[in-house]
Design a binder for these strands. Structure first.
Lengths: 139, 139
DNA sequence: GTGATTGCAAATCTTTTGCACTAAA
DNA sequence: TTTAGTGCAAAAGATTTGCAATCAC
């Protein structure tokens, strides 16, 4: 039993055809090593440094954008001036805690969109984002 | 007939208890004078200057945030690094044209959310945003 | 008058870029 | 080797801030 629950970072990068450099390996491990995450670039950079991995912020951005482009990650925009990157690529939505600037997944099946408009002529739907913005009870 | 279709800027500001300064009057007129708008701060500033209204960008931001706080406006975040302000406060949603960085309203009745999760304990739902991201057909 | 509002310029914050250096294949 | 990847520091954008000057009441 006890099969390895996550794809090793090396395999992820190989499949993505990205060179498994020391930095990318470390970042990939942090991102995909332990369940799903919502991180900002700054956060990820901080975690890497905390784990004694020397990486520049520029490389963190490069890596995040590469993973995003390859659909291993998705960028979630809920706040002006800061992006979050979500490692959960399954169809799902988000709670956004405005008071704490924190995201939390809502499984796809808990949101039922029983009607959506046709996309305007010449366009197709790339994604439908549902963000449930929540805040403290008392105000 | 031909009743005035929009609330005059002066009345809007009075109701909001904001001093009707020259700048605020002009911005309010641009924002609410002719149907609903989706504008960035930079855009609004440009339109004001084009209309020969001397306003600083700082004042544009001040005013937008004041109107947002007073619920005369709502900030829509769909893209990292730029905010849009939507003068339509009716319940509705948005198309976002990724290729043109443009927003378009979707009337509330065209999106049916027939299931939504309970907000986590201690929180209440402030808003539910649905963004349908569309792009060109051909790619 | 006097307190709110404004403008300006500087500061801040996130993200991007240019380019010389380093490392994977 | 050869070319992708990295780090650094500078640049770019959007937004915010501090404070003296100005305006509405």
């Amino acid at each position: 039993m006890t099969a390895r629950p996550f794809t090793p970072a090396l395999d992820i990068l190989k499949q993505a055809k990205l060179r498994p450099t020391r930095q990318r390996l470390a970042l990939t491990r942090i991102l995909f090593g332990r369940g799903h995450r919502h991180v900002s670039a700054e956060q990820l950079h901080g975690e890497a440094l905390a784990a004694n991995v020397r990486v520049s912020l520029a490389t963190v951005y490069n890596t995040l954008h590469q993973l995003n482009r390859l659909s291993l990650l998705r960028e979630v925009v809920v706040e002006p001036g800061r992006s979050y990157f979500d490692t959960n690529m399954a169809d799902h939505h988000h709670f956004y805690f405005e008071d704490h600037a924190r995201l939390e997944d809502i499984p796809a099946e808990r949101v039922i969109l029983s009607a959506l408009p046709e996309p305007p002529a010449g366009t197709r739907v790339r994604r439908v984002d549902v963000v449930v913005r929540v805040g403290s009870d008392k105000d």
